[in-house]
Design a protein around this nucleic acid. Structure first.
Lengths: 157, 157
DNA sequence: GATGAAATCCGAGTCAC
DNA sequence: GTGACTCGGATTTCATC
């Protein structure tokens, strides 16, 4: 997996866009839609994976189908702003499967988390037992999601 | 695509988990890993798609590869809290391709947005030209992401 | 009603050009 | 980059439990 400073031509971009929308397209379909031969398409797609332009392909599961109907955003402020403090917090967050996103931000919070759980009761449990117990957490602010207007849409390119 | 109140057994869950991690697994591979015949696996997987348990399969593109290196979270407060006001805002946001996530939340903001753009300059342009110009926006609070610790990880089930 | 074995069809992956 | 080839997987059928 490369960092890849190489370039993407029109055809590569088309392949990326198509696979971003329909990750299980067959190579044959893909080739037809981008108007190249199957062999060419195959080689290009392989390169896109090998050089790290495509980092993975994932099925999107309906959250409610697997008992994860509640989405919560949480702002976190740490006690101290030392590198160790941040590293420790991040390590702890990486181990929490309920945390889907975690971003270090500039602004009123140190981190913003996106968390999926079964319901509010579940979140309260998580909050009390794990979130406020995370290393160096001074304060959290919880934003319950009342309506998901957009969730993880395609990259605009 | 069903709302599907049907149940998922152990095998279905295994299939979901595998496809969530590796969306391009062949049916043959999948069948082997869940220890059923290819025919059965195929039928079950098809059902998971048809009944809406799997809402799609998407290739994940490295954001930097397509010139979207900057991630920004934005909290939005609307002028008025009328249904029309919310609907209008949501419609406008749905049309903005840079907005990856948009959630109506309870708390200090009305909405929390996740936005991907090329760089800070691009965001400032977007902010000035489109965000604060969105219908009914009273105030926005910007959180530049300095480090992506976790991004859109798998659902924990 | 769901399963697995077999049979057919078609795409993946590789080759020479 | 294309076209052709071979192999293996996708998909259907069908008998079975």
């Amino acid at each position: 997996m490369e960092v890849s400073s190489a370039t993407l031509d029109r055809i590569d971009l088309k392949i990326l866009r198509l696979l971003q929308s329909e990750g299980r397209l067959t190579n044959a379909e893909l080739a037809q839609r981008v108007s190249v031969s199957a062999a060419t398409c195959h080689r290009r797609t392989q390169r896109l994976f090998e050089e790290g332009f495509i980092t993975g392909v994932r099925a999107e599961i309906a959250p409610t189908a697997v008992g994860l109907g509640a989405l919560v955003m949480v702002g976190v402020v740490l006690d101290r702003s030392t590198p160790e403090s941040f590293a420790e917090f991040e390590a702890a967050v990486l181990a929490m499967k309920e945390v889907l996103d975690c971003n270090l931000v500039a602004g009123d919070f140190d981190y913003l988390l996106k968390i999926r759980v079964r319901d509010m009761a579940d979140f309260n449990k998580l909050h009390g037992a794990k979130l406020i117990a995370l290393p160096g957490v001074r304060q959290t602010r919880t934003f319950f999601v009342m309506k998901e207007v957009k969730d993880n849409t395609r990259l605009p390119f």
